[in-house]
Simulated assay, not measured.
Amino acid sequence: MSLFLTDDPNMLDDWLVVGPASALAGATEARPHAVRLLGTALRLWRDAAGAPQCRLGSEALAVQQRHGYLWVCPSGRPARPLFDFPEYGEPGRRLVDCGGIGVAVSGLRVIENFLDMAHFPFVHGGCLGMVPHTEVAKYQVEVDAATGEIWATDCRFWQPRASAAHDGSGSEVLYKYRVMQPFSAMLYKSSHRAGALDAIGLFLQPLDDEHVIAHTLLACYDDVSSDAELIAFQQTIFGQDKPILENHAFKRMPLEGRAETPTRGDTSSVTYRRWLRERGMRFGVRQAA
């Protein structure tokens, strides 16, 4: 019997984020750092050698520190290694943890929203989009045969202010999306540095089927903005998404039937939902009536 609230191997046998590595500063076995994952309270700390440790009751769980975060495999039997994030170690990039924001909706909804360009002019007007620039140009989506990851490429969208470093004059911005896990995705977009792409990681900590903490990491080229400005920009964007996400008619993601009809700009969403169905995803999913 699982010690967690789900028996879905997509969650139990994968590496799930439980917060930034910096959260363990000062944590000890006697005074551990407490987190919640899949409906269960976990305790984390560093041992004398500095290695992260995780306990559920008296049981030790598999834990690792990578990409600036702590990752736990609930079953202790990961089906695959944690995804690569090569931009994290590239010289010249600024690494900025933008903090965790709680969202009262299935994490699958949050990832799908992250992939959606069509909402930019209506939800993020003046920053990531603006009416009448509402058309989503055709782009390419495929599942990489070697890694099983979803990639959406050749995505372009006109934006008034694409990042904290942009001056608001507006430009067409190049995007690439990558989905590594059901609850983890990356966005690569035109940078303040010519010819380079900034990387934005969205890593979701599933508290239960309808609540997550969204952790956002920037790996960007920006010698203009302060850390506070970069964080404020990302939190403003996410703050605009949060009420939309939390007011969905269905908190959990419908994968079957025609509860929600996609449009031409939803190629990434269609691929993501099919990818989830093929994985047999149950956690955070709305079961067909």
Rank of each mutant, 00 (worst) to 15 (best):
L16K: 03
G284E: 06
D8T: 03
G26L: 00
L276K: 03
G284F: 00
A249D: 15
H166W: 06
V270C: 08
T267R: 15
T263G: 10
A21V: 05
G257M: 01
F238R: 09
A145S: 12
V143T: 14
L197W: 04
A51M: 11
I200N: 08
H192S: 14
F83Q: 11
A194K: 10
T267N: 08
F238H: 09
Y139W: 04
W275G: 01
E278L: 03
P91C: 04
A62V: 04
G148L: 02
A199N: 12
S191P: 02
R252S: 01
E149H: 13
E112D: 13
P20N: 13
G239P: 01
N247I: 07
K189Q: 11
R273G: 08
E135M: 09
M281A: 15
Q159A: 09
V141K: 06
E87T: 15
A228S: 14
D97T: 09
V72R: 06
D116H: 02
T6G: 05
A104D: 13
T147H: 05
H248N: 12
L255M: 11
G102Y: 07
F114L: 08
V110T: 12
A23K: 04
F157P: 05
L16V: 08
K251S: 13
D7N: 10
P243T: 04
A249V: 12
A62S: 14
F250Q: 13
A145H: 04
G125I: 02
A249T: 11
L37R: 09
V63L: 15
T236H: 12
D154N: 14
G129D: 07
M1I: 08
R80G: 04
F85R: 14
L245T: 08
H119V: 02
A145I: 05
A196E: 15
V131D: 15
A185I: 04
I101N: 06
S190G: 14
C127H: 14
T147N: 07
L218E: 11
A259D: 13
A249R: 13
R66Y: 00
P254N: 14
R94I: 04
Y177D: 11
C155W: 00
A49V: 08
G195W: 07
G89M: 07
T236C: 09
S191Y: 01
V35I: 13
P32L: 06
D84H: 03
E90I: 00
G195A: 12
M117E: 11
P20E: 15
G195K: 03
D13Q: 12
L207S: 01
F120V: 10
T267K: 15
N10D: 11
R193Y: 04
F238Y: 09
Q235N: 13
R94W: 01
R46F: 01
M253P: 02
L82M: 13
F233Q: 11
R264S: 12
R258D: 14
R279L: 05
R77K: 14
L3K: 11
L56A: 12
N247K: 13
R282N: 10
G280H: 04
W15Y: 09
D7T: 09
C73K: 03
R282W: 02
V72D: 07
A146N: 08
Y69I: 03
S75M: 04
I101Q: 13
P86G: 04
A48R: 12
G201D: 09
V105T: 15
T40H: 11
K138L: 12
